[in-house]
Computed example of a mutant assay.
Amino acid sequence: MDEHDGTPMGLLIFGCQQRALRERAGLTQAELASRVNYSESHVRSVESGRRRPKPEYVRAVDEALGAQGLLKAAAEPIVQLKYPAWFIRYVEAEAEAVKLYTYDNNLVNGLLQTDDYAYAVFRAQVPALDDDEIEAGVQARLERQVLLTRKPAPTLGFVIEEWVLRRKIGGREVLKAQLDRLLEVGEMRNVSIQVMPMGCETHAALEGPLTLLETLEGRNLAYVEGQFGSAFVTEPKDYSVLEQRYGVLRAQALSPEDSATFIERLAGEL
Rank of each mutant, 00 (worst) to 15 (best):
187 E>I: 08
221 L>T: 07
200 C>E: 15
70 L>G: 11
45 S>W: 06
141 R>C: 10
79 V>K: 08
95 A>K: 14
230 S>P: 05
8 P>W: 10
222 A>D: 04
269 E>R: 05
31 E>Q: 13
78 I>C: 08
162 E>A: 02
33 A>E: 05
221 L>Y: 00
26 G>W: 00
254 L>Y: 03
229 G>Q: 06
157 G>F: 01
147 L>Q: 00
137 G>R: 03
252 Q>Y: 06
120 A>S: 02
257 E>Q: 12
8 P>S: 11
114 T>A: 08
55 P>V: 00
196 M>Q: 06
208 G>V: 02
259 S>I: 03
167 R>H: 10
23 E>V: 07
108 V>N: 02
89 R>H: 10
44 R>V: 05
40 E>Q: 14
190 N>R: 01
231 A>S: 08
104 D>N: 10
144 R>E: 11
114 T>Y: 01
83 Y>S: 15
64 A>V: 14
202 T>G: 14
159 V>M: 01
98 V>S: 09
256 P>L: 07
132 D>R: 00
198 M>I: 12
235 E>G: 06
226 G>P: 08
71 L>V: 09
149 T>N: 07
107 L>E: 00
74 A>W: 04
202 T>M: 13
103 Y>T: 01
156 L>D: 01
84 P>C: 05
244 Q>F: 12
65 L>G: 09
20 A>E: 15
161 E>C: 06
205 A>Q: 08
130 D>H: 04
205 A>S: 12
263 I>K: 01
157 G>E: 08
84 P>I: 06
266 L>Y: 00
121 V>C: 01
232 F>V: 02
174 V>D: 06
177 A>S: 14
222 A>F: 02
194 Q>M: 06
10 G>F: 04
70 L>P: 12
71 L>D: 11
240 S>D: 13
72 K>I: 14
239 Y>M: 00
193 I>H: 02
163 W>K: 05
233 V>Q: 01
257 E>C: 05
159 V>R: 00
270 L>T: 03
51 R>M: 13
143 E>W: 13
76 E>K: 15
90 Y>R: 08
177 A>P: 13
1 M>D: 07
257 E>L: 13
233 V>W: 02
73 A>Q: 15
25 A>P: 09
60 A>W: 11
234 T>V: 12
260 A>T: 06
19 R>W: 07
163 W>Q: 07
266 L>K: 00
84 P>T: 03
73 A>W: 11
121 V>D: 00
37 N>A: 11
25 A>V: 02
235 E>H: 12
236 P>H: 03
233 V>N: 02
197 P>Q: 03
